[in-house]
């Protein structure tokens, strides 16, 4: 428990050989080459989107990567043609609620599935896993009926509530909590701590990388969620970004440049979130180290 890593001295990576050896420099160089090449191919679609979003429509089919004629007005057109601000707000609002709900309920359930012993535990867990295995398309209609009966169709609640309970999140956090040494909460228990305290003060902080990962996945997944809001809401003011983007890809004709401009704008918060979220991974490394 006394180990304390600071930013200047992060934990030794796997195979951490002495920093000055020739071997290490070679390894490092090779690592950079692989990373750079991979990163380049991964960047291409994004660059292509940005470049297309700055072209006039007539240039979409031209073979040029860069626009011959720059047209940043596309972005302005997107904002004026549809209530983009409302879509933004809705997407972020819904995704935040779902993230909060899902992380909380999943963490609680994962605690029950990983840190507690009770009869039927693994069988109930398999039931959870089982629902993941039934393709969502066939449960869509029964779901729709349940939600109709609850009078939730076409409300914010229908976008938030059902997504707050996730077998996926439970599974993910259970796996994370399994890696936390049992000795920690056992000793806390002997000291007389309640499960509620063990959960909040010992398990949750140690499961932080897992929580952050789940939060990021949940936020991204819901921010991009398409099928559910498409079916469940009708009114304009409830629409989220992916549904709003449809406006530019209608049966009447695809306005590729505007679609790309809107997609780029829709992606920006995700990129920001990801860059911020990464810091927590790094912190996660330190917290993970404490448990030794």
């Amino acid at each position: 428990m006394a180990l304390d890593f600071t930013d200047q001295q992060p934990p030794r990576p796997p195979g951490g050989v002495g920093p000055r050896s020739v071997n290490a420099i070679l390894w490092r160089g090779a690592g950079y080459v692989v990373l750079a090449l991979t990163a380049l191919t991964m960047m291409l679609p994004f660059l292509w989107m940005v470049s297309t979003s700055l072209k006039p429509l007539s240039e979409v089919q031209s073979g040029h990567f860069l626009p011959q004629e720059w047209r940043p007005e596309n972005y302005l057109e997107v904002i004026t043609k549809v209530p983009f601000g409302r879509y933004y707000f809705n997407s972020v609002f819904v995704a935040l609620w779902v993230t909060f709900g899902q992380v909380l309920t999943s963490a609680l359930a994962a605690y029950a599935f990983s840190r507690l012993r009770w009869a039927w535990r693994d069988r109930v867990f398999l039931l959870y896993l089982g629902t993941l295995m039934v393709p969502g398309l066939v449960t869509l209609i029964p779901n729709y009926w349940v939600l109709t009966e609850l009078r939730l169709i076409n409300t914010y609640t229908v976008l938030i509530l059902p997504a707050c309970f996730s077998a996926y999140g439970t599974f993910l956090l259970r796996q994370f909590m399994l890696t936390i040494p049992a000795s920690l909460d056992e000793s806390a228990e002997i000291d007389g701590a309640s499960h509620w305290c063990i959960f909040w003060d010992i398990v949750m902080p140690l499961a932080r990388p897992g929580l952050v990962v789940l939060a990021i996945f949940t936020f991204m997944g819901n921010y991009q969620s398409f099928f559910w809001p498409l079916v469940m809401v009708k009114d304009e003011y409830l629409r989220t970004l992916p549904i709003g983007l449809l406006f530019f890809d209608s049966s009447y004709g695809r306005e590729t440049t505007l679609l790309m401009a809107a997609s780029v704008m829709a992606m920006l918060p995700l990129i920001a979130l990801f860059v911020v979220g990464q810091r927590f991974f790094v912190r996660g490394i330190q917290l993970g180290a404490v448990k030794g």
Binding site: L230, V231, R239, F247
Partner: peptide, 16 residues
């Protein structure tokens, strides 16, 4: 309502 202009959606929503 162009966003709900899909056969399956129309049937399901109408039934609801």
């Amino acid at each position: 309502d162009p966003n709900n202009n899909d056969q399956s959606k129309i049937i399901v929503q109408t039934m609801a």
